[in-house]
Design a binder for these strands. Structure first.
Lengths: 109, 109
DNA sequence: AGTCTACATGTAGTCTCTCTATATGTAGGC
DNA sequence: GCCTACATATAGAGAGACTACATGTAGACT
């Protein structure tokens, strides 16, 4: 289902999934899976490092919690992260428009 | 205009631009630029190696020609390349659908 | 008691592709 | 003579996604 075409879009996905509620890594993976209708199965070795990277650059911050004896690191968007998400969204639209116009021959008008 | 988000989509772009006519590297770069409305400026250091890679895996083959004293290597789709293009197209649709459904919150219906 | 699955996080190392920078050469206009 | 457009090519850097591994708790089932 996924090649390494995700490259450069992981940030957008992670920020987007955290837009309305803070989540921990495992829940983020499930949310991505669910929201994409099962198409996105992102491995833990991709998600956890990416979350840390986003925290390092100030788009997320995190907090530890213990729920039912299990430790969770819950991530939430920072204001900078929210701004970055907006940028990612418009970049995504520009990206799909550009590639799409090359890939899909249609519409000369 | 372009980050390295192209990663994994170059093949699709190159195959697509060669679908209806064989072209040489330089012309391919111009075609990409034109078809995308100027959004895609792909450097030569990306295109030439990618073309050779696609030739190596059998999706393209090439032929030298001299036009006006200048040497050109003209690439054309092989049958395998044509099949690969079809695959790339459906992969692209699946990809945009998946990412889009995560990124754009709308439409619950 | 032992095993298995779901929950939960993390890192080291690999892989592969895109980009930057550089090199080389022709043709034509100024 | 110089500059721009045309035309191809490669070496090296850089970055991020993946595989595989390591670790541990909770609960269900046998």
């Amino acid at each position: 289902m996924n090649t390494d075409a995700l490259r450069g879009h992981m940030d957008a996905l992670l920020l987007s999934v955290l837009e309305h509620e803070p989540l921990h890594g495992y829940a983020i993976i499930e949310a991505l899976q669910e929201r994409s209708g099962g198409a996105l199965t992102v491995p833990t070795g991709t998600v956890y490092p990416a979350l840390r990277r986003l925290e390092r650059v100030g788009h997320l911050d995190s907090e530890w919690a213990t729920v039912g004896g299990r430790k969770r690191r819950t991530y939430r968007l920072t204001p900078a992260g929210r701004a970055a998400l907006a940028g990612e969204r418009s970049a995504w639209r520009a990206f799909t428009t550009a590639i799409g116009s090359v890939l899909e021959p249609h519409r000369t008008s």
